[in-house]
Design a protein around this nucleic acid. Structure first.
Lengths: 250, 250
DNA sequence: GACAAAAAACTGGTCCGACCAGTGGTGAAT
DNA sequence: ATTCACCACTGGTCGGACCAGTTTTTTGTC
């Protein structure tokens, strides 16, 4: 009908990147490789890459910041500091639990969908993330935990779900780290978490959607409740984690 | 604190051209000056012009043909709101259903929480929204439908959930309108939707969380599946909804 | 060692000039 | 008048250069 002519290089690159974003290969966080990197990797000039990126920008799929890079646009308006929501839970930790409440639902859905839809490649990625997490120190665990959950979210093959979950994670990034760090200190909690992870992992791999969903939801709920429990013990848990290390060594 | 960065040259040129196109300064024929012309006229390099044009192409406002030039895209003035994921499903309608997939979950949760947590004031608001919706014409129904669902989401007293749902709704605003409009035309669908609304309403008001959740989820799923069904009948459903009132009076 | 200042090494933004590849008009050869 | 080579358009691609922000590393000082 219209144009069957070979797409211009920029077009196909844009389409390619778009596909990667939709697939989740490019997570909604800070990830898109630098222009020079893309250029050399794809064997084209930087100008072409820039044109492709502008194309995507026009579609509202990415944002670009001078000096920093290009990022996959978040669905939920990426809250930086000034966002009302941010202050909300910074001051009122209750919102943190609202966050968990929503996350519980979505992680459950993600796990269920992952169990149903994961390709072999997805399963491989999930396994890798899981094994890396198991073999890690409790201290460096935070990122790996994140990676594990994301690998599952990616396997859901629902870009919307992936983006929303990513946004939520961003939203609670600081506090989650505080949580994991603090939970990891307590052997009992950590073991429970590991058990949950194992359950999720096996459920997804063995394609048992219901089980996966339940396990994932239980996991999030457990983390949330553990956190709440701890918070009552040490009220200043989150505040401490958010404050700029007072550099008090003595 | 947000992004007040002076728009890049390419950005402002793109915006400028967009404005001209919308104003009609550039009619939909063989319009847009050549890249070299624009470059010299605007006092920028051709690369910048090309980036701007790609931006517009990404928004679907222009088409470019090798050897001929760039042209204002057909009769379909692009949607002004360039929301992040908006374009996403414009091209890939699959994403629309991903959106519904997530929404199903969250609307269910919202309804359940609303049933549990709604204050008297919430219930009052919900009732008002519901009654307004019932007494309305099928045509003006879209906004009222929106309002009804939001009143429930608000009653969940989970700001995060509200926030996310709001974002998702924004993303599918046009298509939802298309959906409602198209579903409303068909008595069978409309009655089913009304029934769902009634169920949700009563479940929430009578504080039956499980029921509310089920009804809400069924509702979203029904809308999604109805839409899918219709889409197969009339492939151009969404496109039509996105097109500017053809101003066809005769 | 701790810490702040300077430097280097990123990132994107812009420009230039060149050349390739389609398109269309003009004029010469037929 | 038709045909065809040519040339002046158009967009497509390239490479290198430089500017301007950001982040990391190094360095110099206490």
């Amino acid at each position: 009908m219209t144009n069957k002519q070979p797409l211009s290089t920029a077009q196909s690159i844009a389409t390619h990147l778009e596909q990667m974003i939709l697939d989740g290969s490019l997570a909604p966080e800070r990830k898109i490789p630098s222009e020079r990197q893309l250029a050399s990797r794809l064997g084209v000039s930087r100008a072409i890459v820039r044109e492709a990126l502008h194309e995507l920008h026009g579609r509202g799929m990415i944002e670009t910041v001078h000096g920093k890079g290009s990022f996959v646009a978040g669905i939920v308006p990426t809250v930086d500091e000034s966002t009302p929501l941010m202050q909300l839970y910074t001051g009122h930790s209750r919102t943190l639990y609202d966050l968990f409440e929503v996350r519980e639902q979505l992680e459950g859905q993600a796990a269920a969908l992952a169990a149903e839809r994961a390709t072999e490649q997805d399963q491989y990625r999930i396994r890798k993330a899981f094994e890396a997490m198991e073999a890690a120190d409790p201290l460096t665990n935070a990122d790996l935990d994140h990676a594990f959950h994301r690998s599952i979210a990616e396997a859901s093959h629902n870009p919307v779900l992936l983006h929303v979950l990513s946004s939520l994670k961003n939203l609670m990034l600081d506090s989650v780290q505080a949580a994991v760090l603090n939970l990891a200190h307590r052997q009992a909690f950590k073991q429970q978490i590991d058990r949950h992870h194992r359950q999720i992992y096996h459920a997804v791999i063995s394609r048992q959607a219901r089980w996966a969903k339940k396990a994932a939801m239980a996991h999030v709920r457990h983390v949330s409740e553990s956190l709440r429990q701890i918070e009552e013990q040490e009220k200043r848990l989150i505040r401490a984690a958010l404050e700029p290390q007072p550099a008090a060594n003595g």
